[in-house]
Design a protein around this nucleic acid. Structure first.
Lengths: 145, 145
DNA sequence: TACAATATAATTGCATACAACATAAACGAG
DNA sequence: CTCGTTTATGTTGTATGCAATTATATTGTA
């Protein structure tokens, strides 16, 4: 039989669709918990990085979050304006900007400590399936860098 | 042992992160093939819906793509301006807007017929893993609607 | 030491996304 | 029939994302 390109083009066969939809779905579950803290989802994952290791460069945050600096540069400026982080040039290399948590930024970690649990509670998948999903996603990301 | 919330808050344990990163990664693989056709990714998945079934309402497209009408309304207007679709009010119900492909919109399907294959070629996962990923993602979406 | 190549951030332009609100049409109970 | 409710779409405001470009600093090398 000939290759049926019209069949192959159906939405349900495109991996991108459920991937993107699932991502937006899960991210959407964060809003109710982040909004009271005055955080957006992207600000939250930036904080996740900084709570793990404070004082990192803009470039490091880009690498860890796999986000463009065109996304993060303005975001970090806004987070500075909101008093969550400080931005200062490195003494060693004046090209580099180092991002540091303020006290307010540090304190937010405790206020946000239940967020992962609450969001996990919204995702109706067994622990095994979540694990399987993790490894597939990380494999996808790693092999396509 | 007490619950270690700082450990649980590490980026690598948040499902949202690899999910969103993988989605953006895969979507990014479309650009090189869509740009020559003058299409963005979102316009492309709207066309996927219309190529499957022409003449659907704005609401149906929102439902199928799981996107907000605040996203799709302006997008469909732009696609009309670009000559890809037509927008007309339903005769039966004047609230409803029906989207129809123009000839140009129909012809694009042939020009785009290799896109799914080419993108699939960029995703370095075995067919079994892709299948596993599909079912997990669809389960995640379905159970969280 | 000049100076081209490279590296790091920031900026600009364009295209989504979604929440919240607005508008207009259709529906439905009384 | 009628008016409050619901439905379908559009608009506004805010926040990402990324490509492409710019600005500045550093590095490598003749």
């Amino acid at each position: 039989m000939d290759y049926d390109y019209k069949e192959a083009m159906k939405l349900k066969y495109q991996l991108c669709f459920p991937l993107y939809a699932a991502a937006r779905n899960v991210i959407g579950h964060y809003s109710p918990y982040l909004k009271p803290l005055g955080l957006t989802y992207t600000q939250y994952i930036v904080l996740l990085v900084l709570w793990e290791k404070d004082g990192v460069t803009v470039g490091e945050i880009c690498d860890k979050l796999l986000l463009d600096n065109g996304t993060l540069s303005p975001l970090l400026k806004k987070m500075e304006k909101d008093g969550l982080v400080e931005r200062r040039r490195s003494i060693d290399d004046d090209r580099v900007v180092i991002i540091t948590l303020t006290d307010k930024g540090k304190e937010l970690q405790i206020k946000a400590k239940d967020v992962p649990v609450k969001v996990a509670g919204c995702v109706n998948l067994t622990q095994e399936k979540v694990q399987a999903l993790y490894s597939l996603l990380y494999e996808l990301i790693e092999t396509n860098k």
